[in-house]
Nucleic acid binder design. Structure first.
Lengths: 233, 233
DNA sequence: AAGTGGTCTAGACCACCTT
DNA sequence: AGGTGGTCTAGACCACTTG
């Protein structure tokens, strides 16, 4: 209860955020300079800066050198999702994890896959299909392409024992990733392996990774009906 | 090309990240203390701290007081999505935005809605259904519940002119949000308003917001077939 | 009990952007 | 050209957590 206690940057952040939420500073308004806030709160400018950094990250304000700090007019909802290794995801739900390799073959990348990587020339890739199970029920069906050139080691991995998902995560760091979410109707392979009726609505996660400019892998992971993803925070 | 140039925290971050990616520090390894890094890079500890903060945010390392900094063993894929106001989303795609109010009525919240808010007692709410259009074609159908108690002003808004989505975003800040993504088959209303066949696979965004502990609104936004969400970064 | 990350301060200079 | 945020430094103290 010490009133003279130093303010932490979170205190400053909370106070400024409260003012924005209460419309003391309305959307579009220019906020005082960091230095003025520092004077008001009797703290160092660095502390205000740290607070502002957080508010900017959260999408509440927008900062520009010389331009100052403004309350954002068109707030976006910012949601962050953690997509863990599938095995871990299953285990965290308290289910037993299993994995089955369906097929695995060397192939030239078709156009759709080249497009995902943004490359012009077809590369020789390893095409892997596999099924992840939770308590022996289909959980996620993945259709994956791995660039053999950038990742030749994958050829000597026993993919019947360890999923490409897991091996890659543990052995192939990436520097860039692209993630897309969408929905699709079950059909053909997807319906078959996920043991669902043709036409069921399925949640699709598409992930493509690079190391530098070089493709590593792209995967379309189709989840069994009922799958749902919740944001952190 | 000045070799004596001061290092910025991003340089430090990039160097440490490179070492992790190259497995100079392997998953699970303990990294040197901030101070040791500072000595190595001949910079202030604060600078190393800033770099580490970024790596931790990205999910590459984990930091604990006294415990030190460790490379994460089970990396998660962390993806951040910006979900803008629907009007803005449509306009950014270069399409013409339109909006139609479908229905609007005061009702007690049913159990499913109470569950989303995590409340026990049914509240009196405004139940709004509306359709967002892009170039006069159905884009998103939203089914929304708004707590009248915490947001009585909504009753005097002309929802035929302005969407609840937009009004709320501009007038009702929230302090907590929950976002869920899933997939569902078109059926009944959804199929009708999105002008699609029964059974089509649709992408669903469910958002619930609170101010403090108080519910504000929850919405199920169902997108027309083909909708897809891409992560920032 | 002690080690390590977290934060604060005060001052300085830099870099970007608007005017 | 000048104002504002971005960053760096050096030193200090705090707070959490592990051994």
């Amino acid at each position: 209860m010490n009133v003279d206690a130093r303010l932490s940057w979170m205190d400053v952040r909370d106070e400024i955020r409260a003012r924005i939420l209460s419309r003391a500073y309305a959307p579009g308004d220019k906020l005082p300079r960091d230095e003025d806030f520092a004077a008001e709160f009797a703290c160092a400018r660095t502390t205000v800066h740290r607070a502002m950094q957080d508010l900017a990250l959260a999408g509440l304000v927008e900062r520009k050198r010389k331009g100052g700090t403004h309350v954002r007019t068109d707030p976006v909802t910012r949601a962050t999702f953690d997509i863990p290794i599938t095995r871990r995801e299953v285990e965290q739900r308290g289910a037993k994890y299993n994995y089955q390799l369906i097929s695995c073959a060397k192939n030239a990348a078709p156009i759709t896959i080249m497009a995902r990587f943004g490359i012009q020339q077809p590369l020789q890739m390893l095409h892997v299909k596999a099924l992840h199970l939770a308590d022996n029920r289909p959980y996620i069906f993945e259709d994956r392409w791995i660039d053999i050139t950038s990742c030749p080691e994958i050829l000597s991995v026993d993919l019947t024992r360890e999923s490409a998902n897991e091996w890659l995560v543990h052995h192939k760091p990436y520097s860039r990733i692209e993630v897309r979410f969408s929905a699709m109707n079950a059909q053909g392979e997807n319906a078959k392996y996920l043991a669902t009726l043709d036409g069921s609505s399925l949640f699709v996660i598409e992930r493509t990774t690079w190391i530098g400019q070089t493709p590593i892998t792209t995967v379309q992971a189709v989840a069994a009906p009922g799958y749902q993803l919740t944001a952190r925070n």
